[in-house]
Deep mutational scan, measured.
Amino acid sequence: HNLTITQGKLFFHYNPKLCLSEIHKMEEVSGTKGRQERNDIALKTNGDQASCENELLKFSYIRTSFDKILLRWEPYWPPDFRDLLGFMLFYKEAPYQNVTEFDGQDACGSNSWTVVDIDPPLRSNDPKSQNHPGWLMRGLKPWTQYAIFVKTLVTFSDERRTYGAKSDIIYVQTDATNPSVPLDPISVSNSSSQIILKWKPPSDPNGNITHYLVFWERQAEDSELFELDYCLKGLKLPSRTWSPPFESEDSQKHNQSEYEDSAGECCSCPKTDSQILKELEESSFRKTFEDYLHNVVFVPRKTSSGTGAEDPRPSRKRRSLGDVGNVTVAVPTVAAFPNTSSTSVPTSPEEHRPFEKVVNKESLVISGLRHFTGYRIELQACNQDTPEERCSVAAYVSARTMPEAKADDIVGPVTHEIFENNVVHLMWQEPKEPNGLIVLYEVSYRRYGDEELHLCVSRKHFALERGCRLRGLSPGNYSVRIRATSLAGNGSWTEPTYFYVTDYLDVPSNIA
């Protein structure tokens, strides 16, 4: 807008934040220059609390790290170098490059900038070799853009010569660093050979998330399962459950009422301010606690030095998902009996873990797994792929695949051998790939016309006998059925096997 004052003059007093240069501009645009008398524009009460600059400061050096910015700028000295009290560095987070010096300023003089007072450097006698002032900004957020400017702080001049310097606002972004852990990993099994893994992005990506790394490792069953005799009275049979499938998407929606109208769909109840505040506090606490764990609990591995020492970490090797089922080394339970199943799973520490690289999504279907087997899954978020990966501390989750139908069934015939004193040795093959492992066998036998009897055969007993022995049988026709019990439950009964026990007292003698 054009402003013209045809008559009258300007009068400025007691404006401590208004620089004289701005008042002189007002004289020019209003056409009143030359009308004012000496005392109409006070030299001592206008701009006496402001830094009124008329020179431009330029930054000469900028260096960044993930949490620091090192700045240096060209030296500046007023005509009387004693008038320079120091520099004021202003900075704040700036997602967009549209910041002005006066953003967030209120009537009390406060604003949204963080201000650092910096002492002037030592003055050199040689004007050509003056030290460049600077400042190291610490405690910054990774991968965050900051708006920065600097200006001088000078003393009051009796001659009211307006001098000083100020830089333009520059924008500097800190470097990326390792992201925080992925949030809320959930693993479920939808079949006997697959596990579905879902997660949420890290709360602090500290860069642009480029991919996720998912490692999985087959877990050995508890050692007590191999040692305890679950045929003993009072000892509860062990059981394991597989990871249940995901709930429906509708039930997972946030901010939804727990109660549904019987007449149909209901609208979600909005969260109160107290609920939102509580969630923010919980989120802040979780982030602080995660940072504490990362800094205190997890110790970084030592990389190899120039002395030739090897990095103890196993090298990563990509495998196809079809090879995942046989990740671990199978060892027989008892070496003397080769027909026992290889369900003991000690994992070799030198073995390469299978892994998958996930790009542009937060889910993965891990296939080719062994049925009813526990897996430990390790999830890392990465925001750099080359020249070397920059990934987060791992988040861990466990899951067990679903049982395989008929995996616990005894394959092959049940054979028998009759000894003296009416002892019958029953023999059968253990299931080759049971659900988890076989903890015991149930032997059901009966003599024709009598009630059915049951015998429990422990895992250890089966390994020693290759089956079991029935003792003290009365003469007669017998039928026997056997079924295995694994961590997933009972298998199917075998087809009945028949044998006849004679009275050993009636056996004919070869003595003449």
Rank of each mutant, 00 (worst) to 15 (best):
S203A: 13
D204T: 02
N208A: 08
N208C: 13
N208V: 06
T210I: 10
T210N: 02
H211A: 11
Y212A: 14
L213R: 15
E217H: 15
E221G: 14
E221S: 12
D222R: 14
D222P: 07
E224N: 12
E227H: 11
E227S: 10
L228R: 05
L228K: 08
Y230C: 11
C231K: 02
L232R: 12
L232G: 09
K233L: 12
K233M: 15
G234E: 12
L235S: 07
L235T: 06
L237T: 09
P238H: 04
P238A: 08
S239I: 08
S239T: 10
T241Q: 13
T241D: 05
W242I: 04
W242P: 13
P244D: 14
P244H: 12
P244I: 10
P245K: 07
P245C: 04
E247G: 09
E247C: 06
E247Q: 12
S248I: 15
E249M: 07
D250Q: 11
S251N: 14
Q252V: 12
Q252L: 10
H254I: 07
H254L: 08
S257H: 04
Y259V: 13
D261G: 06
S262A: 10
A263Q: 13
S268P: 10
S268A: 05
S268K: 10
C269I: 08
P270Y: 06
D273F: 15
D273C: 02
Q275T: 13
L277I: 12
L280A: 01
E281I: 14
E282L: 13
E282H: 04
S283T: 14
K287S: 07
K287N: 14
K287P: 07
T288L: 11
F289C: 06
E290K: 12
D291R: 10
D291E: 15
D291F: 11
V296M: 11
V297W: 04
F298E: 08
F298T: 10
F298N: 02
V299A: 15
V299Y: 11
P300W: 02
T303Q: 05
S305G: 04
S305I: 11
G306R: 08
T307K: 10
A309F: 12
E310L: 12
E310P: 05
P312Y: 13
P312K: 06
R313W: 09
P314Y: 15
R316T: 12
R316I: 15
K317L: 15
K317I: 11
R318A: 12
L321E: 12
D323I: 14
D323H: 08
D323P: 04
V324T: 08
G325R: 03
N326P: 10
N326K: 15
T328V: 06
V331K: 04
P332A: 06
V334G: 12
A336I: 05
F337H: 04
F337W: 08
P338V: 08
P338T: 09
P338M: 11
P338K: 06
N339H: 09
S341N: 14
S342H: 08
S342K: 03
T347M: 12
T347I: 09
S348N: 14
P349Y: 10
P349T: 11
E350R: 14
E350T: 13
H352N: 04
P354G: 07
F355T: 11
K357R: 09
V359I: 12
K361M: 11
K361Q: 11
E362F: 08
S363Y: 07
L364P: 00
I366W: 01
S367A: 15
S367T: 10
G368I: 04
L369I: 02
L369A: 04
R370S: 14
H371K: 04
H371I: 13
H371M: 02
F372A: 09
G374F: 08
G374A: 14
I377W: 02
I377M: 09
I377G: 03
L379W: 03
Q380G: 12
Q380H: 13
A381I: 02
A381Y: 02
A381T: 07
C382Q: 01
Q384H: 15
Q384V: 15
P387L: 11
P387D: 01
E388T: 06
E388P: 06
E388Q: 13
E388M: 06
E388R: 02
E389K: 13
R390Y: 12
R390T: 07
C391N: 02
S392A: 01
S392E: 02
S392D: 01
V393M: 06
V393G: 01
A394G: 14
A394N: 04
A394C: 13
Y396D: 01
Y396R: 08
Y396C: 11
Y396I: 10
V397S: 14
S398E: 08
S398K: 14
S398W: 12
R400S: 09
M402W: 10
M402F: 05
M402K: 12
E404I: 07
E404N: 11
E404Q: 13
A405V: 09
A405H: 03
A405F: 14
K406N: 00
A407Y: 08
D408S: 02
D408N: 14
D409I: 08
I410L: 11
G412S: 15
P413K: 12
V414Y: 01
V414G: 01
T415M: 13
H416Q: 11
H416Y: 14
H416T: 10
E417C: 06
E417P: 03
I418K: 11
F419M: 07
E420K: 14
N421G: 03
N422L: 05
V423Q: 11
H425Y: 12
L426M: 10
W428L: 00
W428F: 09
Q429F: 13
P431L: 03
P431C: 08
K432V: 06
K432T: 09
K432H: 11
E433I: 13
P434I: 08
N435S: 03
N435M: 00
G436E: 03
L437A: 11
L437G: 02
I438Q: 07
L440N: 05
Y441I: 01
Y441H: 05
E442L: 10
E442H: 04
S444G: 03
R446S: 00
R447T: 09
D450V: 15
D450K: 13
E451F: 11
E451K: 07
L453V: 06
H454R: 03
C456V: 02
C456K: 01
S458N: 07
S458L: 10
H461P: 04
H461F: 13
L464R: 08
E465H: 05
E465W: 15
E465I: 08
E465F: 10
R466V: 03
G467P: 01
C468L: 04
R469L: 09
R469A: 03
L470W: 02
R471I: 11
G472A: 12
G472P: 09
P475G: 06
P475L: 06
G476N: 00
S479E: 12
V480K: 01
R481P: 00
I482H: 00
R483K: 13
R483T: 01
A484L: 06
A484H: 02
T485D: 11
T485L: 15
L487Q: 05
L487I: 13
A488D: 14
G489L: 03
S492T: 06
T494F: 01
T494L: 02
E495C: 03
Y498G: 09
Y498I: 14
Y500L: 10
Y500P: 05
T502W: 13
T502P: 09
T502R: 12
D503M: 12
D503W: 12
Y504Q: 13
Y504P: 05
L505E: 13
L505V: 10
L505R: 05
D506R: 11
V507M: 14
P508S: 03
S509I: 15
S509T: 08
N510Q: 05
